[in-house]
């Protein structure tokens, strides 16, 4: 396996995912297959190839510094599970 069970649990925790025992096994297997595939690519010599961050040959897509009204407060809060006095309200914050 290219990835350990512990690494899968670590990544799941970072993504706030709760995994069942069968899911842990399944994802360990699937992620290993992906990593093994990448390892094949890594055998290529890419010393002189610049990294590709985008497949499109685009740069400097910019907009002028101008304002436009966005959503009304009612619209902004309309999907909030909890809101009070114009604020979103969230549960107690715990350091993870």
């Amino acid at each position: 396996m290219a990835i350990s069970r512990d690494e899968v649990l670590h990544v799941a925790r970072l993504a706030r995912l709760e995994l069942g025992e069968d899911e842990i096994e399944e994802y360990t297997r699937q992620l290993s297959r992906i990593l093994e595939h990448i390892q094949k690519l890594q055998r290529l010599d890419t010393k002189d190839v610049p990294p590709t961050s985008h497949v499109l040959d685009l740069k400097n897509v910019l907009r002028a510094d101008e304002t436009r009204p966005g959503l009304s407060r009612e619209e902004a809060l309309s999907n909030a599970p909890d809101a009070v006095s114009g604020f979103f309200r969230v549960p107690k914050i715990r350091e993870s």
Partner: peptide, 23 residues
Amino acid sequence: TKSKIFCPCPTKFGAEPNTQVCP
């Protein structure tokens, strides 16, 4: 700046909460 870094919402300090927001 007048507007935010990735969208055209205004950046004025001290506005009523959640009145300078967009998707």
